[in-house]
Amino acid sequence: MLSNSQTLKSSNPPIPKPSHTINCNGRLVDLTIPKIMGILNLTPDSFSDGGKFNDEKSALKHAGKLLNEGAEIIDVGPQSTRPNAEFLSSEEEISRLANVISSIKKEFPEALISLDTFYAETVKFGFNEGIDIINDISGGQYDRKMFDTVAETRLPYILMHVNSSYETMHKKLKFDDIILAENGYFSQKTNELLQKGVNDIILDPGFGFGKTVEDQMKMIDEVKFLGFEKFPLLIGISRKSFIYKPLGKSALDINEETQKLHMKVLKQGAKILRVHDVAEAKITLDNFLNSISN
């Protein structure tokens, strides 16, 4: 267990902007320098890397690769949420997780581990295994016990904008103003969380979930207006179809375009990039840090 005084440090120069610090099991993590979150899917059916890391040995190896390339957070996902993915119960998620979290913690004690789930029971399991952050794509809407469970763990919570049910999460809705709609949603949900004592909240605009290409490009252009700088922003656009489909490319062939968008959101204050391709994102982050330090 890490001591309360242990703080994640970086050799990069500080950014002259308001900082956000989150408490991860007593470990104070300063998001003044944006962080890279590497994706570790334990799934056989994720759309771009399904079946590659769904056993403990390969998962541990990939976690090491992500950390070596520059990730400071590993986002462990036991269930795919791509369109038409297999729906798993919490029990099935826990079975799939097995000893992966505790093994990563043992092998890489410096790593922060985020658990990607919309189930309260999976969160409880992950908490006992040593997770540092809860990443809930449902905004507490798919399990009514989620917010109370988050409050009990006292861990940072990633709040994503998404449609109100699992069945409709990918149904594309028409928004008069996507930024206004997201801020209304975030305002309501963060108030609920704050009232329950959850203070470390990270906002995720929900790229790839029930939004048109046009709305998602508007989100990229105006991401600085989301949350009114009250909470840190996580941006997850890695291998998303709103980038590759209009270009007639595949999910694995849009690195250049993705890094340009990463740079755009970093310039607007994004604090966490959730990515598959860590090495490429680290180059972008370093270029961003160099640009603001000169």
Rank of each mutant, 00 (worst) to 15 (best):
L2V: 13
P18Q: 10
N25G: 11
T32Q: 12
K35P: 02
G38D: 00
N41K: 03
T43F: 05
G51N: 07
N54Y: 04
E56C: 13
L60Q: 04
A63G: 09
A63K: 00
K65T: 12
I73G: 00
G77M: 03
Q79S: 14
P83F: 05
A85P: 08
E86R: 10
L88W: 13
E91C: 10
R96T: 08
I101S: 06
L112N: 00
D116N: 01
T117F: 03
F127M: 08
D132E: 02
I134E: 00
D136K: 12
D136P: 01
D143H: 03
F147G: 07
E152G: 06
T153K: 04
R154V: 09
P156V: 08
P156D: 02
I158A: 01
L159S: 01
V162C: 13
K172P: 09
F175G: 02
I179T: 03
N183A: 14
Y185P: 01
F186G: 05
S187H: 14
E192C: 15
L194A: 15
P205E: 07
F207D: 02
F207H: 06
K211I: 03
K211T: 03
E214F: 04
D215Q: 05
D215S: 04
F228Q: 15
E229C: 14
K230N: 14
F231P: 00
I235G: 00
R239M: 11
L247F: 11
G248E: 08
G248C: 11
G248Y: 12
N255I: 15
H262P: 09
K264M: 03
K264G: 02
L266M: 06
K267W: 12
G269K: 08
D277Y: 04
T284C: 14
N287E: 12
S291Y: 13
